[in-house]
Each structure stands twice: as C-alpha cells, then as structure tokens.
Amino acid sequence: MSTPTPPRTGPVPATAKRRRVPLWDNARFACIVLVVLGHAIQRLTYDSDVALGLYLLVYAFHMPAFAIISGYFSKSDSPTRTRMARVITDIVLPYLIFEGLWTLTKWLVEGQAEPNFTEPSWTLWFLIALALFRLVLPYLALLRWPLAWTILISVLVGYWENVDSTLSLSRTLGLLPFFTLGWWLAHHKVLERFDLIRRRRWWVRALAGAVLAVAGWAAWFFVDTWRAVNLREWLFYDDSYSDLGGPWWSGGVRLSLMAIALVLSAAFFALVPRGSYWWTHFGQYTMYVYLLHSFVLYPFRENGLLRHAEPTWLWLPSVIAVSVAIALVLATKPVRVVFRPFVEPRPAWLFADATLAGREGRRDDPTGSRRPR
C-alpha cells in the first residue's frame, strides 16, 4: 500500500502572468493611426477627390472597429467599486479636463469661446460614448438578443430629431451595436472557438485585402456621387435623417452602412498582424494619442496648411506618414509622463475612499488596452 504524499508546504507559487495578445495591441495602434489620418486629411477633402475617397474609406469603419475593440474588453457583470471609480477617473475627468483645455485654446487662438460641457469638442465625443457604453452594457446583457435590440435602436434613433449631439447621444446610440458586438464576441468566445486570434489563412488575408481595395476604389471612383449625397455626414452617425435630407426609408441606409462597416472591420482585423513588433506596445497607449493628437493638428488646420496645400499624389502619402509619426510620438514614454495627470488623473481628494484613486497594476483602459500603470 503506497504512502500518501504529504501536503506541500512553503510559499504558494504566484499566479502565472497573463500573456498579452499582440493582435489587440496591433489593432488598437492601427485604429488610432486611422483616427489621426482621418482628422489630418479632413481639410484636404475639399480640393482632392483622392483625399475624399480615402477619408470616406477610413470613416466607413475605423470608429466601428474601435468600438468593437472597446466592447471586446468590457465586462457586463455588476461593476465593482473600482470599476465604477475608473469610469470617473478614466473617462469623466479626462473629458472635463480636455474640454476645458479646448475652451482655453479657442479663447487664446480665436479670441472667443463659449464653454459648453454638454457639446463635446472635436474628438471628445468618444469619451462620453465610452462612458455610456459601459453604463448600459450590464442592462443589455440581461436581454435576449442584445445585438438585435441595439441594431434596432441605432436604426430608429435617426428618425428622432430631438436626439442630437448633446452628450454625444446620437453617435453613442448609432455606434452601440458595434460595442455590443465586441462584448458578444468575447462573451461567447467566438474568436477562440474558430482560432481567429492566432491563425490567419492566406486566402482570408487575400480576401480581406481585396475587400478593402474594392471599397477604396468605390470610394474614389464614385466620389462625385458620395459628395452629392453627403455621405461623409451619414458616416458620422450624428445627425438625424431629416437633417441629412434623407427619405423615409433612411433607416435602410443606416442599416446598409452598418453592414458595410462590419464587413470592412472584419477585413481590417483579418489584415492586422498577429505577431509582436517594435511598435506593438504603442497600442497600449491609444488614449494618449486620441486625446492629444487634435492639439497637434489644430495649428495646421487653422493656418490653412491642411486646406490650401496642393492635393497631389505625393502630398497625400506625406500626410499619411506624418499621421503615423504623430501616433508614434504621442505614445512614447516621455509624452505619457508629462501628460499622465491629464489623461489618467487620480485625485484622491475626490473620493470618500481615497484608495479608489490608486493606480492598480494591469488593467483595461477605456479603449480596451490592457496594460501596466
């Protein structure tokens, strides 16, 4: 009869460190580059069909893709005190800080400013959208067919003229299906089941490249049509159908644009590299790029450089290269150290329990980036 093995004594080994998935860091960085690029070429679109075509291609899917990523890393269970505090420190406070900075900037540059914290300046609408996404997700998760409900809400909200850009409500409800889709994919482990995170078959990459190429060609070739129907405004998910001059069946247009965004986002994710590269870790700091890049671009937009420059084939690649450079620089450590109090404020005086303002270890930021402090 064998002698029972005595229980192990001594210190319990630490839990294995959670391994990062390079795909998501790569996807986040690619998305934030598209955000910078879209804002950089916006003024060029008035004089260049090529710029407008690229602009429409980017706006057709880049924010839906960002919403999918954010939803993928969001939790639908009852929020803990720490997670509730993070909504305040990671979203609400940065919004108030940067909205105040934009008000000051406009006053200094333009000589006038009308502070209105219910109307987000430029890029800040997505912060409010993220806050509302996280607040409603636990309730959506209680429903049967949450995706279907959010699609219905997105389509119907365009018919309601009283739902506008106040607190980004129109855009939030318009993009809610993509955030919910990201959560649904993670909740049901769809990517793991089909091994989509680790593997990419060559024909999938070829098909994804073809899809984006065809979409880019269509955006450029039919650019006069898209300009006539004001397609860029439709892609913002911001104005009501009546404000856009749309017919009674405009809900079908919104549904079609959502389907196109889903296809293009899938193609985008299929092309995102799965390995780790020298730039991969920058995907952990997309919030810094998102909040700061508009201040970098603002002087160039205001002095006319991005409006009256000759829109040649050489100029556009240059703007693309500069956009990548801006994203890289704003994600570097020196920039993060300087601007951390603005992007990641931790005011202990604000909370009844001061520990809620502490900087915990690895966590998910509002854009879904899981990273150290």
Rank of each mutant, 00 (worst) to 15 (best):
G245N: 00
A352L: 14
V253L: 14
L44F: 05
L185I: 06
A51E: 11
V322E: 07
R86Q: 10
S76T: 01
A348P: 13
D25C: 01
G275R: 14
L173S: 04
W217L: 08
R81S: 14
L56Y: 05
R81T: 10
P317N: 02
R301K: 15
I151Q: 11
L93T: 06
G246A: 15
L93W: 02
W203D: 11
N303C: 09
G71N: 01
L96F: 08
P317K: 01
A219T: 02
L255Q: 11
L104C: 06
F282D: 11
Y237V: 00
S165E: 06
N162F: 09
S265G: 01
A65M: 00
L262K: 05
P317L: 04
W145V: 00
Y139N: 12
F221G: 04
T286L: 03
V335I: 15
W184H: 11
D77E: 05
M84Y: 03
P4C: 04
W313M: 14
D47T: 04
T5E: 14
A129S: 13
L305R: 05
P273I: 00
S168T: 07
R28E: 02
R43V: 00
P4W: 10
V109I: 10
W24M: 01
G174S: 08
L130P: 05
L140S: 00
T82F: 04
F221S: 09
R198V: 07
F29P: 10
P372C: 14
G174P: 08
T150G: 07
F300K: 02
S154K: 01
P299Q: 14
F339W: 12
V337L: 15
Y285S: 13
